[in-house]
Design a protein around this nucleic acid. Structure first.
Lengths: 345, 345
DNA sequence: CTGAAAGCGCTTACAG
DNA sequence: CTGAAAGCGCTTACAG
């Protein structure tokens, strides 16, 4: 690739025998420039194939018109949907997205955040990684005067903008649904409890049991079963218990629920009559397993749009924003075959 | 969000009574700076919570250490996997990714590309949108001296770096597999033929038929059936033909194949005994439908890594690079239940 | 090893 | 409406 000298506003100015100031003004739709000169400038810019150097422009203007996004994994349905949603709302306002993935590793997350601070992004949108134990790096973002929006997995103690799901309520509804459908011994597959979302989901489970006067059975609550493999492993143990559960709420993910379903199939346990299954996230595949899996839709693309809009709202009224603003999106329980104990399907 | 004055190298210099030059050198690990001063500078930078302004640094150095990526949709498995792969290789070399989605719309694609040129990215990685009809905007990238890497869906006539799948061969193998398993009337669901990938897949289909001396039946080749809905629609028509096919190769995607499977189920046509189905992409769900769907794995994360590595290879030897370089990745046929006509499963 | 100065490409208050 | 000048925050050849 040969080094190409790009045309600058000086080149255009020189060609027309005017100054760069005028060129800049014309190109920025400033009102204080003669209509004739403007046209001439735009025409010349076009001829010379001029492209503004956004770097220089942003440096001068003191912002980058860039939003940094940090997620555990780009190629995970929920996150890629949120990103798509953010992109949709921010792109049309001329903002660019810089995307980083932390890979669920705290140290890489810190690195990502620092890179974004260096880039002088106007806003950092983040969903923290599973092994995050300290939030100094996020505090640092705030200290640099950068807008910070946490979503889904958030550090609750940090006073920032947050866009979250009402996980507790969604969980409550899912477990209530199981109880109301006649399931009596409902197991919970839980995720890392240092993440708010998994704590909330557990709380929803507990509240549902309490509300319906079902007592909690400790051996039916399994820690850290948040992948398909771990879900399957947990299920094997659960189903081999002297008193096995008759329903499993895979609160961590649909992948985990899938693990449950596969083990049930292998062990020849009928779903939903002998075992009810409920997942979380409404992954595409939950609709097409047999039976299809009851799950919870998080409206991830919508969540992304909400994040984008929240950002623009904030920069619109810089003064007002004092206290942390939290937007909670209500997920929706999607009832499918895997929990229809009493129906004929 | 209050406006925060960030600390610059001048602040550090002032505090230590030296010049910004030395601070810059110290922070860039230049050898020409006293070890003692360096330590002092680094310590002070830390105390003042200094973060380099990458914008300014890049402007001065004439590059952005940023790679732009344009894909039709971020939240499509194949693309999000490729992006994840690119990110993995480029991040560790200090490059950032700016991601845009064209939404399969030519005009937005042009806009995205222009934005990236404005951003002075060092490289643009793109998979063109389905309705692209002209490639002036890509030529423009080259004209600006920006590295251009096309992947998967490429404008073949443009001489750029390309990372592609050997779609023709993969298709050939898939259709050969169907023929060898006893299927006789194999339908093809094809995608927009202005995209190279779909042309190649069709060619593979045709070559397989020819090689096995099966003649092409025009009514079994359906145009533009590349979503689940369109796949389903095409299938309804095909199966209602006087001489319906006994296998359908959904060359466009697994979603399309899923549409086929669902229609077959509704019409009570047995898969794989009465109808064989082969998809494309190895989406997660293909493994768990019943029967599971035979498909083609494109190694999408690997593809992303390949793209990243190709870029670094190119910038490593700027001089050498003359002719276009094409890296072709061989996809793998994954045989599953949906095409096992003769076995008992 | 350190400093003074120029410059990356833009924008914008200040004059006129 | 246009120009001259300063400055965004860095880096780097040039002196010493």
């Amino acid at each position: 690739m040969k080094k190409v000298k790009r045309t600058t506003i000086y080149d255009i100015a020189a060609k027309l025998g005017i100054t760069a100031s005028s060129v800049s003004r014309a190109l920025n739709n400033s009102s204080q420039v003669n209509e004739k000169t403007r046209e001439l400038i735009i025409k010349t810019a076009d001829e010379l194939n001029y492209k503004r150097n956004t770097l220089a422009s942003n440096l001068r203007k003191g912002h980058s018109k860039t939003i940094g996004v940090v997620v555990p994994r780009i190629n995970q349905n929920f996150f890629s949907n949120v990103i798509a949603g953010i992109e949709e709302t921010t792109y049309q306002k001329g903002y660019n997205l810089i995307i980083c993935q932390s890979g669920e590793v705290h140290d890489k997350e810190i690195q990502c955040v620092n890179t974004l601070i260096n880039q002088h992004v106007d806003c950092i949108v983040i969903s923290v990684s599973a092994d995050s134990y300290d939030y100094q790096h996020l505090q640092n973002v705030l200290d640099h005067g950068i807008q910070l929006i946490q979503f889904d997995r958030v550090a609750e103690e940090l006073e920032t903008l947050k866009v979250i799901n009402d996980n507790e309520q969604a969980s409550f509804e899912a477990v209530s649904h199981l109880i109301e459908n006649g399931y009596k011994r409902i197991a919970l597959l839980e995720g890392p409890q240092n993440l708010n979302i998994f704590r909330q989901r557990k709380n929803g489970y507990l509240r549902a049991l309490e509300t319906h006067k079902v007592k909690v059975i400790d051996e039916l609550v399994v820690e850290n079963a948040w992948t398909k493999e771990l879900g399957a492993e947990a299920t094997r143990k659960l189903l081999n218990l002297p008193h096995p559960p008759d329903a499993i709420f895979a609160s961590t993910s649909d992948f985990s629920a899938l693990g449950v379903l596969e083990v049930a199939n292998v062990m020849n346990i009928k779903v939903p009559s002998e075992l009810g299954i409920c997942g979380y996230s409404n992954e595409a595949f939950t609709e097409i397993t047999s039976p299809s899996i009851t799950t919870i839709d998080q409206f991830s693309v919508y969540m992304g749009k909400t994040i984008g809009n929240l950002f623009f709202q904030e920069i619109a009224n810089v003064e007002v924003s004092v206290k942390p603003k939290i937007i909670s999106i209500k997920p929706e329980l999607i009832i499918r075959g895997s929990t229809k104990k009493n129906s004929s399907l």
